[in-house]
Amino acid sequence: MIVTGAGRGLGRSHVEALARSGAKLIVNDLGVNRDGQGEGLPVAEEVAAAIRAQGGEAIASQHDISDWDAAGGLVQQAIDTYGRLDAVVNNAGILRDRMIVNTSEAEWDDVIRVHLRGTFAVLRAAGAYWREQAKGGNPLQGNVVNTTSPSGLFGKPGQANYGSAKAGIATLTMIAAEELGPYGVTVNAVAPVAHTRMTADLVSDEGAMQTLAPEHVSPVVVWLSSVRSRSVTGRVFEISGKRFGIAEPWRHGPGIAPQGVMTPEEVGSIADTLLQAALPPERMGGNL
């Protein structure tokens, strides 16, 4: 199976837990800084070597998942190495927090590219492989675990780029579950809150660090990557040491059936009534 962004933080915790469960792993990571810049370090090989030293099976990958062809190459690497691909955990991402009016074009494009395009590119390549296997009558176990965020589900000031990408991943998860379901593929997502280098400047209390340790998240990823969760698809799971739950997607709230074309005055009057009956937007609150 493939885990992207697996050299540090949540990704490393995931591959270590998956290795203990017997998974054969492609450990993918470019080894760059959390903003996606800097000289790439061989963190993927270091993690893969550590897994092999413990008796597990793992090889490293430095494919750039945001590159269309490289994402396909990553999927092919897994197939060539292990003879098949059973699961993908899309975890790679970068962070460039900025208020909207201060965000540069590159800061927007790069975060969307790595998170949303990268998740889609790997998902597309893996989905095409599984569709081919299903049409050929070959038995398969296809599981995808995407990584969204409370920032994408509920919004967080200063993370317009990151939150937009993560919201897109949550919706992509639901669409992919519908499209790939007929081929026997499940697609779910996790929305973790964890203390990693991505959130190091948000969490400093030692007790909170323990509560938000990545190890709280990884068992859910292992479960979603296995045959034990084959009846579950199109879901987003919220996970931290504080809470394990399911995030519910957009739902139809209060509404009416317009009697013809409304005037702006009617819109205002009806909207006031609907807003009084509607639930207020939910915010991230005490997640961190």
Results as ranks from 00 to 15, higher is better:
P254L: 07
T196A: 04
V220G: 00
G31P: 09
A92F: 00
T263S: 15
A167G: 14
N188D: 09
T211L: 13
W223T: 10
T199P: 01
R34P: 07
A49N: 10
P249L: 00
V227T: 12
G40S: 07
Q159S: 11
N143Y: 11
V75S: 04
A208G: 00
A49L: 05
L279E: 14
R12H: 07
F154S: 09
S164F: 04
I79C: 04
L95Y: 11
P157M: 12
V267P: 10
S104A: 05
T4C: 06
P182D: 01
I59R: 06
G9S: 06
E46C: 00
G255A: 15
G207Y: 08
I94G: 08
N102V: 00
V203A: 03
A257H: 15
I2E: 10
G168F: 09
V75F: 04
Q133S: 10
V193S: 11
R131T: 07
M198Q: 10
E206H: 01
R243A: 13
G184I: 05
V190T: 07
P264G: 10
V88M: 07
G286C: 07
G118I: 04
S240G: 12
G7E: 01
A257K: 15
Y82T: 01
S151M: 11
V193G: 02
A60K: 02
L224A: 06
A271H: 11
S164C: 03
R96W: 04
Q76Y: 02
G241C: 03
E238T: 12
I26A: 05
E107M: 09
D67R: 03
A60T: 02
V3S: 02
P280Q: 05
V187R: 02
M262Y: 12
